[in-house]
Write a protein that binds this DNA or RNA. Structure first.
Length: 236
DNA sequence: AACGTATGCAACCGCGTAAAA
DNA sequence: ATTTTACGCGGTTGCATACGT
């Protein structure tokens, strides 16, 4: 498979963006959108590669970017989702409107991870795994229907619609009606006492992974309801 | 005040994959 | 059906600033 020969050409600028470059990029995208990142810098008159332009726009210049410190609620969401999903920063970012995957990744490595390490209980005291040192995919069940971040992205996008029963990549996604949770609960193979939401149970979630019931419910809620924000494309 | 170290964050790099040719 | 191209993601790097000695 060929790979994009991005940034190979000599003469393309690297490093921090100047205010002038930012203005050029903002102005161009506001008037033309960004249907083709690779062609954008040339058309806009920027000596940058498309990849660099995309990154700058997505992580810094987009009008819907929320700047400033993370709220306690946002941090808790990151911690909870990271516990369930591992380093799936883009998925986590999808549940926090205005926050970028890069920003969340930075916050995790600079603040949250350290904070958690300070308060981490010994492994033997908890059945809930954190995914910090192992890739999420390595924890997937052998028969897990999801194998790549792009598939999860597809799920996220599919979730943005009202009806999701059509499924993604052959996987039938359930309707979020009242019977949904009863089906999930009936799919749990745990023999733990009912109502113990802190305990790990194996649930029939599409990731084939373990998460506690509360986490599973929160996850689905975020996926189906907050993903709506994702597909509201800016108007140019 | 000067230096060394730690921290935070923006940006780059390389890979996987979907879409196009 | 195969190859090429472009995009998006996660890991990593490097610079600027803060902090401690």
């Amino acid at each position: 498979m060929g790979r994009a020969p991005c940034c190979e050409k000599m003469g393309l600028k690297k490093g921090p963006w100047t205010e002038e470059e930012d203005l050029i990029l903002i102005n161009y995208i506001n008037h033309n959108g960004h249907p083709n990142w690779r062609a954008l810098p040339k058309r806009a008159g920027l000596l940058r590669c498309g990849k660099s332009c995309r990154l700058r726009w997505m992580n810094y210049l987009r009008p819907d970017i929320k700047r400033g410190n993370f709220t306690k609620e946002e941090e808790e969401t990151i911690i909870k989702l990271h516990q369930e999903l591992g380093n799936r920063w883009s998925i986590i970012a999808a549940t926090l409107p205005g926050r970028t995957d890069n920003e969340i990744k930075n916050v995790w490595h600079t603040h949250l991870k350290k904070r958690l390490n300070k308060t981490t209980r010994p492994e033997s005291e908890t059945q809930i795994h954190t995914n910090e040192s192992s890739d999420f995919t390595q924890r997937e069940e052998p028969n897990s229907p999801l194998h790549s971040s792009s598939e999860i992205s597809s799920l996220t996008n599919a979730a943005s619609g009202a009806a999701v029963s059509g499924g993604v990549d052959g996987y039938n996604l359930p309707e979020m009606d009242e019977s949904f949770w009863s089906e999930v609960l009936s799919g749990a193979t745990s023999d733990l006492p009912a109502g113990n939401s802190d305990s790990v149970v194996r649930v029939s979630n599409p990731f084939g992974s373990e998460m506690n019931m509360e986490g599973c419910m929160d996850f689905w809620y975020n996926m189906f309801h907050r993903a709506e924000d994702l597909v509201q494309l800016p108007e140019f």
